[in-house]
């Protein structure tokens, strides 16, 4: 067992971990931040995406010990103190970009990272970027639409609701 320390959602966080403990398990089990989800065991589904030092990372693809000294942001750390959601979160609600909600935290964290790197993506760029996030409910239509809308683009011409 080893002691790890990091900053999670702006606050110091620490705990005892085994060498094999994944960052996602540390976040969920030790810190009790259950908004980050586990949807697979091959680092394919993206339900566990968090930000580590500002970059989108699948939290199942690194050990908790590797996150020593980093700044981690999870879905719980996105909305403002008063509960105001980010433009991406708001767009997901506005354009019905979620159904069961299970892939949603990872989708939002990926979308936030995409728009930070590429503030004005094309539809193709959004779809390409989301290859690492699987959603079984929405057919991606409204997720892509929400992300384009969050980037400030006019989505009124995109077919149907």
């Amino acid at each position: 067992m080893a002691q790890v320390k990091m900053t999670v959602n702006g606050k110091p966080a620490s705990g005892e971990v085994e060498g094999r403990t994944l960052l996602v398990d540390f976040i969920r089990d030790t810190l009790g931040l259950t908004g980050t989800h586990v949807g697979c065991d091959t680092s394919q589904c993206g339900a566990c995406v968090v930000h580590v030092d500002g970059k989108a990372v699948k939290a199942c693809s690194m050990f908790a010990a590797e996150a020593e000294g980093t700044e981690v942001t999870t879905i719980e750390g996105m909305a403002a103190e008063d509960g105001t959601m980010t433009p991406v979160q708001q767009a997901f609600q506005e354009f019905h970009g979620l159904q069961c909600g299970f892939c949603t935290p990872g989708m939002v964290m990926s979308a936030e990272a995409l728009l930070k790197d590429n503030p004005n993506p094309t539809e193709a760029e959004v779809r390409e970027y989301l290859k690492g996030n699987i959603c079984r409910c929405t057919g991606y239509h409204n997720i892509v639409k929400a992300i384009l809308a969050a980037s400030g683009q006019d989505v009124s011409k995109i077919a149907a609701e």
């Binding site: 259950t34 509960g83 959601m85 609600q93 979620l98 909600g101 949603t104 935290p105 939002v108």
Partner: peptide, 12 residues
């Protein structure tokens, strides 16, 4: 439903 799912407050 969306606010709880979008902010990590769902209860699965």
């Amino acid at each position: 439903e969306d606010v709880r799912f979008l902010t990590g407050a769902g209860n699965y």
